[in-house]
Simulated assay, not measured.
Amino acid sequence: MSLVPTLPTIPEPAILTCIASVNEARAMRIAEILSDFRHLQHFIANIRANPSAEEYYEEGYCVLRQCAGEAQALLNQPFDCQGPEPDGNDEEEKAQLQRVMMDASIRRFKIQQTYLKASAALRWVNSRTVILGGSQPQSVHAPALQQITNTMRSELASVTPARVELSLRSQDSIHGKWLVEDPTWSAMEQIIRTGR
């Protein structure tokens, strides 16, 4: 009698079914990530801030234009789906889904970062509108305008990779999403840095 426990063997069809169901979960997760990306893109694309000629170069409006440019650049990037077609092979399908998930996750991460910056700039625009009450800026407005600019700068500085990752993971966890294979920021950063 052997003291080494023997592991039960799992029949090959059961393993293939398990792999296929995990690949389905991966595909569903990619769809969720891309849906989030699309919603954030839509939000940014629909920002309507119409500064006067005098306000055009005010910091908050510049941030909004920068965010719109970042969002457009993300849309213009081709998706990275390199690699062979799976041809019904579950392992090839897994590898392809993981590549697509990485690409989708990087896009969502970047658009979330842009969204957080745009939100800070929109709060600045709204606060500025309230402070000015439809009139031109005057010296009496200077302290309040400086305060909202300082607040926006502080909010922009807080949009770190760690904060972006935490905000995404928190939202996903609240909604009970499958996060087992979501890439971390460090994994995404490595891909971004190597340009793959």
Rank of each mutant, 00 (worst) to 15 (best):
Q112K: 14
Q112W: 07
Q112Y: 02
Q113R: 12
Y115F: 15
L116P: 00
K117D: 01
K117E: 13
K117A: 14
A118K: 11
A118I: 11
A118G: 10
S119W: 10
S119A: 15
A120Y: 14
A120L: 11
A121F: 09
A121N: 00
W124E: 01
W124N: 14
W124K: 12
V125Y: 11
V125S: 02
V125K: 11
V125H: 13
V125P: 00
V125L: 00
V125W: 06
N126T: 08
N126S: 12
S127I: 00
S127E: 06
R128Y: 01
T129Q: 09
T129C: 04
V130F: 13
V130A: 12
V130P: 00
I131H: 00
I131F: 05
L132M: 07
G134T: 05
G134V: 12
G134A: 11
S135T: 15
S135A: 12
S135L: 08
P137M: 04
P137D: 03
P137H: 02
S139I: 06
V140E: 10
V140R: 14
V140W: 00
V140H: 10
H141R: 06
A142S: 12
P143K: 07
P143Y: 07
P143S: 02
Q146L: 14
Q146H: 15
Q147H: 11
I148G: 03
T149A: 13
T149Y: 07
T149R: 15
N150R: 07
T151C: 10
M152Q: 03
M152W: 08
M152N: 05
M152G: 04
M152A: 02
R153V: 07
R153S: 03
R153Y: 07
R153C: 11
S154N: 13
E155Q: 14
E155R: 07
L156S: 02
L156F: 05
L156W: 06
T160Q: 03
T160D: 02
P161E: 03
P161F: 02
A162D: 15
A162S: 15
R163Q: 13
R163N: 13
R163C: 10
V164R: 05
E165Q: 12
E165S: 14
E165M: 06
L166M: 09
L166T: 13
L166Y: 05
S167G: 09
S167I: 08
L168A: 02
R169I: 06
R169F: 08
S170M: 03
S170E: 08
Q171V: 07
Q171W: 04
Q171F: 06
D172F: 04
D172S: 09
D172K: 01
S173P: 00
S173Q: 09
S173K: 09
S173T: 13
I174N: 00
H175K: 11
H175W: 00
G176H: 12
W178S: 08
W178Y: 12
W178E: 03
L179C: 10
L179W: 02
